[in-house]
């Protein structure tokens, strides 16, 4: 029996191990490729680089617009996440704590909108921004991002706000604190962990976003990472600058890896809850 169970444990580990390789190997291959010259990538795609130099990273950053795009992505990620909180926190509080006619309807409207294909709205959205002269504008893109994540953020925050003890709010109200003060100084700090969870997921989705940026941005100096990476891919194909493309991919992925290693628990929690909804 003992031998049999040991054997079956080994047998189960084989697919687990294989899948780990399938996940990790392409990423390792990408990192190693980023240090190789083009000639090396073609002659020996599997080997280690002859010398570890950062030329590809420098070229991607400055010659292929990845540096600017990195900063643009950082801008829309931060601004989008902040705006989203600004919109979602008060509404989540009102929906969870202040009873009013239609609060369930409103909450369900927000939740149901998460199921709709956003692609249907992209054509009118494009012309709306065109009309208000907001195309090719990073501020406008951040606003669009923020609004797109309002329902998800409300959904996460409502469940966290349910756990805030009512007595605290009541005590503050009796002490003469205004409802605005209660929301800002009592409730918001208490749902910090919900805010962190939602914000991390929002930030990742803004950082990774590609299609809206492709449609709503135009000039090269405004491009975010997704669009810039796609352009880099096209020019890398003509110039066979594969090493630079690998380096660009690394620049786009490294912040996500750092984020993931710090906030792993929050990310997992937020995503699984978001999917259960």
């Amino acid at each position: 029996m003992q031998i049999l169970s040991t054997l079956s444990k080994i047998a189960v580990r084989i697919p687990l191990f294989l899948w780990s390789i399938i996940v990790v190997f392409p990423l390792v291959w990408m990192f190693i490729g980023a240090f190789k010259t083009n000639a090396e990538i073609f002659s020996s795609p599997w080997s280690w680089p002859q010398q570890w130099n950062l030329n590809n990273f420098v070229a991607a950053w400055s010659n292929y617009n990845i540096g600017t795009a990195f900063l643009n992505s950082l801008f829309v990620t931060i601004l989008g996440s902040l705006l989203c909180l600004l919109f979602a926190i008060p509404t989540a509080y009102a929906l969870e704590r202040l009873r009013f006619k239609g609060s369930d309807v409103l909450l369900n409207t927000y939740l149901a909108s998460m199921m709709l294909p956003s692609v249907l709205g992209w054509i009118p959205l494009f012309f709306l921004l065109l009309k208000f002269n907001m195309l090719d504008n990073l501020w406008a893109l951040s606003l669009v991002y923020a609004v797109s994540q309002i329902p998800f953020t409300i959904f996460i925050l409502v469940s966290f706000m349910g756990n805030v003890p009512r007595e605290l709010e009541e005590a503050a109200a009796i002490d003469g604190m205004s409802p605005y003060g209660i929301l800002l100084k009592i409730v918001t700090p208490l749902v910090k962990s919900g805010i962190i969870t939602a914000t991390i997921l929002n930030a990742i989705s803004f950082w990774n976003e590609y299609f809206l940026a492709l449609i709503l941005l135009d000039t090269k100096s405004k491009n975010t990472l997704g669009v810039a990476m796609d352009l880099l891919k096209t020019s890398a194909r003509y110039e066979s600058a594969w090493g630079v493309l690998f380096a660009g991919l690394c620049i786009a992925v490294i912040p996500v890896i750092i984020f993931y290693s710090i906030f792993q628990r929050h990310i997992v929690k937020g995503m699984t809850e978001g999917a259960i909804k």
Partner: peptide, 11 residues
């Protein structure tokens, strides 16, 4: 403005 209108607009 940014979610409901675009959906209806698409229709």
């Amino acid at each position: 403005i940014f979610t409901v209108y675009p959906m209806i607009g698409g229709l």
